[in-house]
Amino acid sequence: MQGKVYVVTSGKGGVGKTTATANIGTGLAALGRKVALIDADIGLRNLDVVLGLENRIVYDLTHVADGLCRLRQALIRDKRMEHLYLLPAAQTKDKTAVSPDQMQAICDELRDDFDFILVDSPAGIEQGFRNAIAGADDAIIVTTPEVSAVRDADRIIGLLESAGFEQDHRMLVINRLKPSMVRRGDMMDIDDVQEILSVPLLGVVPDDESIIVSTNRGDPAVLDQSSRAGQAFRNIVRRILGEEVPLMDLNDQNGFLARFRRLVGIG
């Protein structure tokens, strides 16, 4: 068995790379796949917090890269999912503490034991990004429907292209879409963003307060059956596994009209 390596990247910070990595990884593990998550954001690690694993860190990515511990020793097992593991970033060093060659070696070693390896890339286009993409087969580009995020995503797509990620190895996640703003004409919609970036769409995640609640608790929203963002991530996971899943209806299910329709049984 040889696992597949995905890098989750965006260029711009704060668009939801870490949330996407945690949720897609947890979702894949919930469907029985063996998953390793790598936090490549050395110096600003956060994937451990989103997963609620911050108290279990002993060794990190830089220890493995420097040969101070074995890869197996640094992997933290998730507290919910039997087949989900995290390789955390170092918090006290910087991006130069690891080289692209070392990252690639770590990813390749993980392929033997895992079905999926997800690398959470740091923001930016410098060495942290270079490290994150070094061992990856495919790239998941996360953006929000905003000018600055789409612009940075376009830059990242250009860099991925010149790093050898062909068209069918790049996929787009549009995060934090607000259907009510799209209806008002105050937010770019799925077609607008796709037309500009021309990258195949992997999924669309609606803006959802449950993401903040889930991050507060360290429980990924993908496991919360009532979370709309969680549903979107479950759909993304199934698409990664090769299923054809239609885009979910993004219209607000808790608005007055939707509740009224449900009440009278036409929704």
């Binding site: 905003e146 000018v147 376009d154 830059r155 250009g158 004409g185 105050d186 607008d192 500009i196």
Partner: peptide, 23 residues
């Protein structure tokens, strides 16, 4: 004009420059 149309137009112009200067 809906602000998303403004956003799209600004991005269109921006990316012509970005893509040309990056390459």
């Amino acid at each position: 004009e809906p602000s998303k149309d403004v956003a799209k137009e600004r991005l269109r112009l921006l990316l012509i420059h970005d893509r040309a200067s990056v390459a």
